[in-house]
Design a protein around this nucleic acid. Structure first.
Length: 284
DNA sequence: TTTAGTGT
């Protein structure tokens, strides 16, 4: 009898030791993961305003950028990255698109074949490559960073915006935080079957650009799928609040109430010299 | 220098 009691005590102690070990390991992992996330986002990673199936997501970490992945939409709901000025910006050759096994869903590199949609980058190839290097560049070609875009948007209007960000805004401000992602129709069921393979087709895309300073500046764009491509960029400027309403996401959650009101509630284009870049011609 | 599909 005595032996049995000591046996169970020993077991209990072993379980206790294991639990402590797991908790410490989890704590260390969590701390490290938070550190990575803080390096790739300003004022906290985007989160959901309310816990709904369409806004819930999990965070995938890449070299140079984070992805908020939705298993319901089978889409990145947001990507977050910093860009800073570099001496001699250049990018290597375009790598091949790659499957990302972390998505679980089988999205292959030819899932978009014959769909009429482009494999549109959210975290852009050129800017990420120029600022964060070759490995980060290859990660932008993971299918978890890709979403269906109409060719005239992807290759023209959206490309012009990406070009203005890296060629004009980054040199002017030094460092930028960028968040970009898709926008879907208000009612999930209206669009649930509108998919390229398994990937739901967005109706529009947003890009939020922040100068992370003591007195931060913010500029946000919302661009629909159906554009010609030569429209002036400033036609699509919106407030961050509007993007939050359309996406159900909460951007910069660590921002003070006061600062959030000023940064997100209104459109302020002063300081960006948009008029100089809004009508630059399309490269493609 | 910056976007891609195509059809294999």
């Amino acid at each position: 009898m005595r032996k049995r009691i000591s046996f169970w005590r020993r077991q209990a102690r072993n379980v206790g030791v294991s639990l402590v070990f797991v908790m410490v390991a989890t704590g260390l992992w969590y701390t490290q993961e938070q550190g990575y996330r803080d390096q790739l986002s300003w004022m906290g990673v985007p989160t959901w305003e309310t816990l709904t199936p369409t806004s819930v997501h999990r965070v995938l970490r890449n070299d140079g950028f984070l992805v908020g992945w939705s298993d319901l939409r089978v889409n990145p709901l947001w990507v977050s990255y910093y860009l800073h000025a570099v001496e001699d910006p250049h990018a290597g050759a375009r790598p091949d698109f790659q499957r990302d096994w972390r998505t679980l869903w089988p999205i292959t590199t030819d899932s978009y074949f014959g769909s009429g949609y482009d494999r549109g980058h959210l975290a852009p190839n050129y800017a990420i490559a120029a600022v964060h290097g070759r490995v980060a560049q290859s990660h932008t070609f993971r299918m978890s960073n890709i979403t269906p875009q109409r060719p005239d948007l992807n290759r023209r209007l959206w490309q012009r915006l990406e070009e203005v960000v890296i060629d004009h805004f980054v040199p002017r401000f030094g460092t930028l935080q960028v968040i970009a992602g898709p926008v879907f129709p208000e009612r999930y069921l209206d669009n649930a079957l509108n998919r390229v393979g398994l990937v739901e087709v967005p109706e529009a895309f947003y890009k939020i650009i922040v100068v992370p300073a003591e007195q931060p500046l913010a500029l946000a764009f919302l661009m629909p799928q159906n554009v010609r491509g030569n429209e002036p960029l400033d036609r699509y400027v919106v407030s961050i609040d509007e993007i939050e309403m359309r996406t159900g996401l909460d951007f910069f959650p660590n921002l003070s109430e006061d600062m959030a009101g000023r940064l997100e509630g209104q459109v302020r284009t002063q300081g960006w010299e948009l008029e100089k870049v809004a009508r630059l011609p399309s490269r493609f």
